[in-house]
Nucleic acid binder design. Structure first.
Lengths: 127, 127
DNA sequence: TAATTATATACTATTGACAGTATATACAAA
DNA sequence: TTTGTATATACTGTCAATAGTATATAATTA
């Protein structure tokens, strides 16, 4: 996996946001959709491309697909996420905002029964 | 200038190599061409695109165009160059190699009279 | 078994980046 | 003023990435 492949990947703001969110913890496709407000098909394709690159992993829980950062996390991705989270630009602020929205989402899931199966909840950390 | 513009730029290995070289010091177009072994038109277009982005600057010395990193150097570019120069991948090794080739080029210019005008030499650091 | 939910894939059209060729410009030297 | 050198731009064709629509698959529930 070359550096240029990584850069092509994170050159798409939406893919960068996905990596930023997954670095904070596991999420299922539908919650990623909700957080980023993108159509299902687009999210699915972007996740597939990053899985192909080896940046993320997925596993099924019932009808749900949980996505997580592939371990060990790609160092170049890590370096850039760390930098961008601290930096000040439109995209950088969005990354910080996304992490806050993720917190709120998890709180909501915790309060809403049957929003996701229990095994999923454990991994997401909502229960 | 958004992060995604920077990533799109450095997602091209050749543009990354150019930035890597310019970060080490001023170079003229023809020497960049020689170091990277690319046709003139390609080099010229890539430099133009990076100038448009605000990453590099140029000024004319006679028939020569000297390119340099725009000051202050873009921080995201800096972070990535610093990381890649230390890392171990095909592209990273190339960056290190390029810097060595640059040293040798400058030595050669120093020994060859009239390879470039004196004012250029001063900036490149070859005399 | 049929219906529903969550997700993935196939297909198509469009767009943007890039390479290559040709030509233009800017300056220097004769 | 012509010639040469260094560099930039215009133009064109090609290819890869993307979005959107439709459909398929996989698991769950009724």
């Amino acid at each position: 996996m070359e550096a240029s492949d990584i850069y092509k990947c994170i050159a798409d703001p939406q893919r960068l946001r996905i990596l930023n969110l997954l670095e904070a913890g596991v999420l299922c496709v539908c919650h990623l959709q909700e957080l980023l407000e993108v159509p299902q098909v687009k999210m699915s394709k972007q996740l597939a491309s990053m899985k192909k690159l080896g940046l993320v992993e997925s596993h099924r829980e019932g009808t749900w697909m949980l996505y997580a950062m592939a371990e060990p996390i790609n160092r170049l991705v890590g370096v850039n996420l760390r930098y961008l989270r601290e930096a000040d630009c439109t995209e950088c602020n969005q990354l910080q905002l996304d992490l806050l929205r993720r917190e709120r989402l998890i709180l909501r899931i915790r309060q809403t029964s049957n929003e996701c199966p229990e095994s999923v909840c454990q991994q997401i950390g909502c229960c």
